[in-house]
Design a protein around this nucleic acid. Sequence first.
DNA 1: AGGTGCATGTAACAGGTTACATGATTAA
DNA 2: TTAATCATGTAACCTGTTACATGCACCT
Lengths: 173, 173
Amino acid sequence: MAADSLTPTGRVVLGMLALGSNTGYDIKQMVDKATRHFWAVSYGQLYPELRRLEQHGLIRGRPEPTGGRSRKVYELTDAGTRALRAWLGANEEPLYEVRDEGLLKLFFSEAQPEVRIEILRAIHERMERKLAQLEALGTPTKSGPGMTLSLGIAITKAYLKWCDEAARHLVKE
Amino acid sequence: MAADSLTPTGRVVLGMLALGSNTGYDIKQMVDKATRHFWAVSYGQLYPELRRLEQHGLIRGRPEPTGGRSRKVYELTDAGTRALRAWLGANEEPLYEVRDEGLLKLFFSEAQPEVRIEILRAIHERMERKLAQLEALGTPTKSGPGMTLSLGIAITKAYLKWCDEAARHLVKE
DNA sequence: AGGTGCATGTAACAGGTTACATGATTAA
DNA sequence: TTAATCATGTAACCTGTTACATGCACCT
């Protein structure tokens, strides 16, 4: 399996294993703790992907039950390490996608000022919640894992600031 | 078809028709011009959805060819208008999703400083390009369609600022 | 005559979510 | 004993992209 046929979730798996995750559950925990605000993964995608990657020889798994509880520990193979490096080193334009239903509503609600204010309030609330979640995750730093966190926080704050301005403007009208 | 079984793309269609779009092509143009930075739609989704919405009675289309060129003009039905309003007025938590491959790479490249700088550069470039695109779209305003644009620009700038700080920090190391 | 824009559409594929199903271990 | 956490997995469904196919109209 070449690096370019690595699925998005496959990349996350390789990356997390490289950073020290062991099991599928473990990877999911890491994702939820560290990357979920810019890259989410669900179990329904994760477990099939683990099997797929193993079939393709990028990872290797061995059963390591905890008592009677089934548990499978994975590690990168050499091919897997190469595939990960190849992806990290490839300088294609990285994917960047946003889907923001709140903005979409705002965009379509032009003719209804009452609804508009309500929508803006909902967006604001959502972002407040997001900010709280991010801040609960740990300390933003200038390097290491806290680095991406600091971006998330910066962006959320910029978003909130925009909300405030927009709300002020709407009320004035 | 109840408002809650409206698909994401279906919502966009209703919204765009309400704002004055006529044909599928037209809707796609509007999306690309106005919402694509927070909500994209492809033809492959759009045309089947138009048919689906018509079948469910939310929109009504009539052929209106331009000379020999086939063309179908759609408009909202009453049910469609209601469905749109229902969605706009529903105060469920609006969906907000980001997928940022650049950040993901950055997150996984912790052990490789050389690659890291390169990745950060790629992210920066991407955001510069995005900013240029957004600025080419029109004038950001405090209300109307330019409102969402101003948010896009604000967020992209916050992102770029973070990039600069991160780069400065990486170089220092 | 040729390129750009208007206009519609489909088939194959990719990627992902949700809900469900199951069961052991551990801390309160 | 019971709730939370560890742990794995599947099936049905949904949503979306990409690549392809087609053809007219208008401007130069």
